[in-house]
Design a protein around this nucleic acid. Structure first.
Lengths: 165, 165
DNA sequence: TGCCATCTTATGGGATATCATGGAATTTTA
DNA sequence: TAAAATTCCATGATATCCCATAAGATGGCA
């Protein structure tokens, strides 16, 4: 089984910016880092640009490579490629878990998403997100209400079954 | 034969949140976990978000993988995909049966569906549900009365045979 | 068909390991 | 050399493991 990022949890961010990555996510990061070996700590990538500036996104080494490969397929000097490289390559950084499973969010990163002393981690399958709790709640509410306003044939759950493999 | 989740049963939830999964369901979970082998314990997934927040839903690894695969076909940053990931990945968690066939419901999960010291397990074919007993009874009653109000051509039993594969 | 041996299931309690988090000590770097 | 970043150690809370038991279920056999 290939493990995916699942679940959500709330963690303290201390004065130094240290924050625990949920234990379940660590397993996924380990599996997704080809250089990981027992006893070491996995590397991964945090993207802070992207479509939504409101949260950070964490990718395993393997899944960010997939994205990189997709970008490489775009014409070399196209506007699209330029833009994606800017958002996904420029505005991202390698990270490594420390021995106790924490990362440190720099002042810059914390500022980027308005984080104080708490952070929400949310599993999104091939990636996870880090949110300031209030913003996260707003996001959920917005999602809920936009879901309620969908017509039957716009419902993504129902559309799923139509995409038969 | 592919076994499905069938039947309903009531189980105690102890102070640690431990609760036995019905023996019949275990067989289905084992068959639905590609990594299961005799002597180990099957993994599966519990979804607590979804359209109805009032119960937990358990899926085998195989059936949740089907869903994951469909979601992965949607464009990576599309609104639809984002929404489905949020409802299905974020609001779910991996679980593993212990050696005696139990799982533990975290405080958070118990709270989510208002469970005290008892839980009802209900088989629903490809998935099963976990309910707080009173809520389960209400659900049954509601279903009953809405069924009684259906006209002949709304009756799902009768519609069943019209959907030819 | 009544009885006993055995296995499975459901449940409980205590010991142990992992996780999340904080603080001090040490190193780096600007 | 002061501030920032990193490493090391400490601890309470939570989750996990291991063992125990009682009640059913199962099956054989006289």
């Amino acid at each position: 089984m290939i493990r995916r990022f699942r679940g959500e949890s709330l963690h303290k961010v201390d004065a130094k910016g240290r924050v625990s990555v949920p234990a379940a996510f660590r397993r996924v990061l380990e599996e997704g880092d080809p250089d990981f070996s027992r006893g070491s700590s996995p590397n991964f990538v945090i993207v802070y640009g992207g479509v939504r500036g409101s949260c950070l996104e964490g990718y395993t080494i393997n899944s960010i490579s997939k994205v990189d490969k997709l970008i490489s397929k775009l014409p070399r000097f196209s506007k699209d490629r330029e833009m994606l490289e800017r958002f996904i390559n420029t505005q991202s950084t390698y990270m490594q878990l420390d021995e106790t499973g924490r990362i440190v969010l720099s002042h810059r990163l914390k500022e980027k998403i308005g984080i104080g002393d708490e952070a929400i981690f949310a599993g999104m399958g091939e990636k996870f997100q880090i949110w300031e709790p209030k913003n996260y709640q707003n996001e959920l509410n917005a999602l809920d209400s936009s879901f309620k306003n969908l017509s039957e044939d716009e419902n993504p759950f129902l559309k799923l079954d139509q995409l038969q493999d």
